[in-house]
């Protein structure tokens, strides 16, 4: 009988990423249902100072690997270290973040530990002690439930922004175990890092996204969406047509060959709603479409549709939002 549910937190640039708290919260729920302990693994350079943050979400014990070698995620160094720490936790279930690095780590770890991985899961159920994980397939066109073979370690990476977070309990403290993991010689290394310091919000983690498509007509008009996004605390996304035209960087592309996003609110401006675009944003909680064509397919997915010329509507809407925000 295994001892724990174990989460692998993601620490970068001096803080745990929010998804770490989401998986801790989800891990807590599973551990309670299974009658197991909740352990956490924290790896990074300087991570020791922050480990108690995980306790607030129910982690009882944290294993810490704090070493300058772990400043950046490199599979060759992280995978053996995390595997070694997991061994000490005797887990039945391991939860990881389905972030860019998290997905990479999860996959390689699953191969090392000889088990099955449900990548980018959006729901976990426990019935009669058996775990099932649900994941969107075919870009969200359908959903699949996965189960593990008897005795196999359950490995699940969780899509950011989906699992609900517990109220942080400031009074909680976790036992901290510093682990001296061996850092293998790696053939791969990080040469340079270029973080965006403009305060831009990452699409996959944004609560609100304002996206523009071919209807925006040119790169300069995105300033309009940037302004609206600024007022809403939103990230700006784009359709493939806007990216292919060179108006927006590829990292802004939402869709089946771009980012898959699940914000509370997705505002699609001048986007027709092609099936590949819907694959990336169709599970947003609320969808607003602004399009001058009343027959645009995006309207069939929208909670609120506005049939208007965007160049007329967006400035007026932005002023209304400004009024609302300044009255607060």
């Amino acid at each position: 009988m295994a001892e724990s549910v174990c989460i692998v937190a993601e620490y970068r640039d001096g803080a745990f990423r929010k998804v770490s708290y989401e998986i801790a919260s989800e891990g807590r729920r599973i551990a309670d249902t299974l009658g197991l302990k909740l352990y956490g693994i924290a790896i990074g350079s300087g991570v020791s100072d922050k480990v108690q943050e995980l306790a607030k979400y129910g982690v009882e014990k944290v294993l810490v690997a704090d070493d300058p070698a772990f400043e950046h995620y490199i599979a060759e160094t992280y995978v053996p270290a995390v595997a070694e720490m997991l061994q000490q936790c005797d887990p039945a279930v391991v939860l990881l973040p389905a972030s860019m690095n998290g997905k990479d780590l999860s996959a390689r770890l699953a191969a090392r530990l000889e088990t099955g991985l449900a990548q980018d899961s959006t729901e976990i159920s426990v019935e009669d002690g058996k775990i099932k994980a649900k994941r969107p397939l075919f870009g969200g066109k359908c959903l699949g439930w996965y189960e593990w073979a008897d005795g196999a370690l359950v490995m699940i990476s969780c899509r950011p922004n989906v699992m609900s977070m517990l109220e942080p309990d400031e009074s909680k403290q976790a036992e901290v175990v510093k682990v001296d993991v061996s850092v293998p010689e790696a053939r791969s290394k990080v040469v340079s890092v270029d973080m965006d310091t403009s305060g831009k919000i990452e699409l996959t983690e944004a609560d609100i996204i304002v996206s523009g498509g071919r209807g925006m007509k040119g790169p300069e008009n995105f300033a309009m969406l940037e302004e609206l996004a600024g007022l809403l605390g939103a990230a700006v996304g784009a359709s493939r047509a806007a990216v292919d035209a060179g108006w927006r960087p590829h990292s802004d592309q939402v869709g089946q060959t771009g980012k898959v996003v699940t914000p509370n609110l997705y505002i699609a401006v001048g986007i027709s709603g092609a099936i590949q675009h819907l694959a990336g944003m169709g599970s947003s909680k609320y969808i607003v479409a602004v399009n001058k064509d009343p027959d645009a397919p995006i309207f069939s997915k929208a909670d609120y549709g506005v049939v208007e010329d965007l160049f007329k509507f967006i400035p007026v809407f932005t002023e209304e939002v400004r009024r609302l925000k300044s009255s607060e």
Partner: peptide, 25 residues
């Protein structure tokens, strides 16, 4: 070690509404 046991369609989205076409911008 892992097996797809069932598939389901995503939940239907609630029908949305067009913001009243009679209104001005």
């Amino acid at each position: 070690k892992i097996r797809l046991v069932s598939l389901e369609m995503p939940p239907e989205r609630k029908p949305g509404r067009i913001i009243n076409g009679d209104l001005d911008t």
